[in-house]
Design a protein around this nucleic acid. Structure first.
Lengths: 128, 128
DNA sequence: AGCGAGTAGCGAAGCCTTTCGCTGAACTTT
DNA sequence: AAAGTTCAGCGAAAGGCTTCGCTACTCGCT
């Protein structure tokens, strides 16, 4: 058995997590509505995916109500950080700043976002 | 058939790409030496993976010499950018800056790196 | 010519992911 | 109570990824 909580979400799993992050805790019906909209898959499929994700520890659920209510086991921020760490490890050989520079260079930031980043840089400099 | 060049590398594929990025163009023997070191897999497996990656367009090879010489089809920078774009799309809903902030907040940047980032921000502001 | 070593490739097995049909339980409406 | 609706779950099929055994080709050496 693969270690619980150590598995990376696959494509569909990530899609479901995104739905949960956006909607907050939800019954299968609502999750399915979104998923089917994007992919046209069957209700059974959504149920199954959630059950697989439950055993993997990617989602949790409240079984005391009907219908059961699912929620993401991780916040979006935490998941993002995990992916990011992995990306940095696997592709950038551990240099976070290379990635930052690359992201900045992708160039889609607005003026206010740039200001925000600058502010953050100032703060970081103050600390170190 | 999946569209050529549109497929994301899987775990093992990424491992092979990293080896190629580090070693530069190499014969199977050398790639295998590295891969086996980490995973203990068979020579056949390495050959097969490379052939799969060849049909996916992830690597290219020179068949005019023996042994054949393989090279990564993409530079590390280009691949990284691709992963990053995908990460941004899938987890951060397309906001590159969210990711930048996150990476910065992880807080491992040195003074010189911070300066470099600030310079980049200035440039970006100039452009927009 | 025959042998051994290094190289390349095919096809199938095993596993994981994603899909859904079918079943049954619980609850609502006639 | 019977019929219909919603919900949950199992098991199997389909497809992708990773693995390797077996085969075959080339080349240099005896």
């Amino acid at each position: 058995m693969r270690e619980l909580g150590s598995s990376q979400p696959t494509a569909v799993e990530l899609e479901i997590l995104r739905i949960l992050w956006e909607l907050g805790s939800s019954p299968v019906r609502d999750i399915h509505a979104r998923l089917a909209e994007a992919k046209g898959t069957n209700y059974s499929t959504t149920v199954k995916m959630l059950s697989v994700m439950l055993t993997k520890g990617l989602v949790k659920r409240n079984e005391e109500v009907t219908p059961h209510i699912y929620r993401a086991a991780m916040t979006r921020e935490r998941a993002a950080k995990k992916f990011l760490t992995e990306l940095i490890e696997k592709v950038y050989d551990g240099s976070a700043m290379s990635l930052v520079l690359q992201a900045l260079a992708s160039g889609k930031a607005s003026k206010s976002e740039i200001d925000e980043a600058r502010k953050l840089l100032d703060e970081m400099e103050g600390k170190s």
